[in-house]
Structure formats: C-alpha cells, structure tokens
C-alpha cells in the first residue's frame, strides 16, 4: 500500500525573526509509526501543531489522509487524536471526569461516555485513581490518562508530542506498549522524541530534524548505515595515551576517530571489522593498554552526532547560536 496518512511539503512557520520550521517535508505511510527525532527547539512541536490544525503554516502545505490541514481543518480534526507535550487534560478534574468530558466532546452519548471512560481507566491501569483529581497523579499516570483521552474514539492518525519525556523506564515501557497496541489496531502514529532509543524501538521510519529542517530520513537501519556499517568503541586503560591511540586508529582504520565526552573513550566508523584485529596488534606493539574494545552497529546517538555535528542533547551550543 502506498496510502499516505500524512504528507507535508515545505512547511514553514516563523515566529518573528525565528524560522522555527523551515521547509519540512514529510511522508508517512498509513498504519506505520513515524518518529520525528530532534533536540529541544528543533521545531518538532511546531510541526505537530501545524499538522494538527492548531497553528496555521506560513508556507507550504500539509495533508492528513488527503485532507488539507488549513482548507479542510474540520475534516482533519475528525480523523486525528493529539497528546500534546504538556498535559492536555484538566488537572482539577478527576480521571473519570476528564475521560467523560472528552467522550462527550467527540460526540458519544452520556451513557456511552461513562462506559468508555470506565473501560479506558481499566485498560490503562488507572481504576484506583478514577476519582482523584489529575493533579495528584504521578508523571506516568498523567501520561496514560492523557493518552486515554486521545483515544476515546479510535483515531485514524494519532500525534504524540514527546510522549515519554520525563518518565521513568517502567512508565516509558507502558507508553510504548500502548503505542504498539494502537498501531496493531490500524492507527497511524506520528511521535516526536528527543530519545534516540525511543525512535529506534518504535518507529518504522524516522525523520531527523534540526533547526527547523529535516536533515535525514529513513528507517533506523538506513540512518545507521549512512554513518558506516559498524563502529569501534575503544576504552583506554590509561587516558593519557589518548593522542597516541587516536593516531593509531586513524592510520589503521583510515578514518577520523570521534572524541567522545567520556574520558579515554574513542569511537570510529569501521568499514571492515576485520581491520580491528590489525588495530589491536598495533596497540599492543605500541604499549597502549585496552580497558574495553568492541565493534557494534552505530547507535542513533552517533547518527545524530554525525548528521548535525553536535550531540542530541547539546542545548548550550544551540541556544547560543
């Protein structure tokens, strides 16, 4: 099938001088999970707000299941669900009240709404909190009630803006399970994240976005391949030997090693893992002690570093720029 659930062409949004989104193109196939990966301030939320009809694009166009987000906004709203980055439920209301409210607003009857609210609370393991105001919920519970509110009726396309930011690993796992379940039920999911492993885990395809533009797009494997087949991780026993070791790596593997923020750790793309054996022999010959060495497929962190020239969580440099 080549049906596109979401397609965007040259989306632009400017806030004063700042081009928050600067020509984003997206093509998301129906029934898949699409990850939009980028650091804080890359333009992820602004893109989602345009796709969900909350913000009018300054340039370009976007369609959700064939309906234009500007000209046909009402039809788009009938097809989508949205869980924003900040709790989009009413904190003063209880879990049940929030879900009943949401159900009524999508058009379910009073009795259907009550039934659906109870069912969702049960499914999302929130029954005991049903009559507590949401402001007393834990972070993970809040996220779950938020997700539940987005799926009181099954959306054709669900937008999740940083669904797991700030969650503990267990709550994160729960959110991931919910997303997988929804996709199994036929929903297309677009999620934004700053976590590379999240995109890796969930998304069929990933767009890496930085400073308002898509700088890479493809499957997780595509992105990793673009950085080299595998990568060397070398931890030195004595970090003062770093310069020597880097030179040896550069000579033997014929590449430029990356300095990582971790002292005494060197990483480098490896075209042919066989050569690593040669490297180990040379290191021994030069008296460089090894604490740990390995060859692995590159992580998305490295992909990000290679593509953008800065780390995914490198905020200081960005805000200064």
């Amino acid at each position: 099938m080549t049906t596109l659930a979401i397609e965007a062409h040259g989306l632009v949004k400017t806030f004063g001088e700042n081009r928050a989104v600067d020509g984003v193109d997206l093509a998301v196939r129906a029934g898949t999970v699409y990850g939009v990966l980028g650091p804080n301030g890359a333009g992820k939320t602004t893109t989602v707000r345009m796709l969900t009809t909350l913000l009018r694009p300054d340039g370009g166009s976007a369609r959700v299941l064939g309906h234009d987000v500007v000209d046909d906004a009402d039809q788009v709203r009938r097809l989508i669900g949205l869980t924003g980055q900040y709790a989009s439920v009413d904190e003063d209301l209880t879990g049940t009240e929030n879900l009943v409210l949401q159900s009524r607003l999508v058009g379910l009857s009073r009795s259907q709404s009550k039934r659906r609210a109870a069912e969702l609370l049960e499914n999302f393991d929130l029954t005991e909190a049903a009559n507590r105001p949401v402001k007393h919920f834990s972070g993970g519970m809040r996220r779950r009630i938020d997700l539940a509110a987005s799926i009181v009726v099954t959306p054709d396309v669900l937008f999740l803006d940083e669904p797991t930011t700030g969650l503990d690993p267990r709550s994160r796992g729960q959110v991931w399970d919910i997303v997988r379940d929804l996709v199994a039920g036929g929903t297309t999911v677009l999620l934004t994240t700053q976590y590379l492993d999240e995109a890796d885990q969930l998304a069929d395809r990933i767009a890496v976005i930085d400073r308002g533009t898509v700088i890479a797009e493809g499957t997780s494997a595509d992105l990793k391949a673009s950085v080299g087949r595998s990568s060397l991780h070398l931890r030195l026993a004595d970090e003062t030997q770093r310069d020597l070791a880097e030179r040896l790596v550069a000579q033997t593997l014929d590449t430029t090693p990356h300095r990582t923020p971790e002292a005494g750790v060197i990483t480098a793309p490896v075209a042919d893992p066989d050569v690593v054996a040669d490297l180990m022999i040379r290191l021994r010959a030069e008296g460089v002690g090894i604490d740990e060495i390995g060859v692995q497929r590159p992580s998305l962190d490295e992909v990000f570093l290679t593509l953008t020239g800065h780390a995914a969580d490198d905020d200081t440099e960005r805000s200064a720029a």
């Binding site: 969702l120 999302f124 779950r144 799926i151 009181v152 099954t154």
Partner: peptide, 13 residues
C-alpha cells in the same frame, strides 16, 4: 496495559 480491545468508531461530532 491493554488499550485497543476493539475499535471505537467516531460518531458525528
């Protein structure tokens, strides 16, 4: 956590 036992169709707004 089990979410989508069955698809809930969207009624008229």
């Amino acid at each position: 956590v089990r979410t989508v036992a069955a698809r809930v169709e969207r009624p008229e707004p």
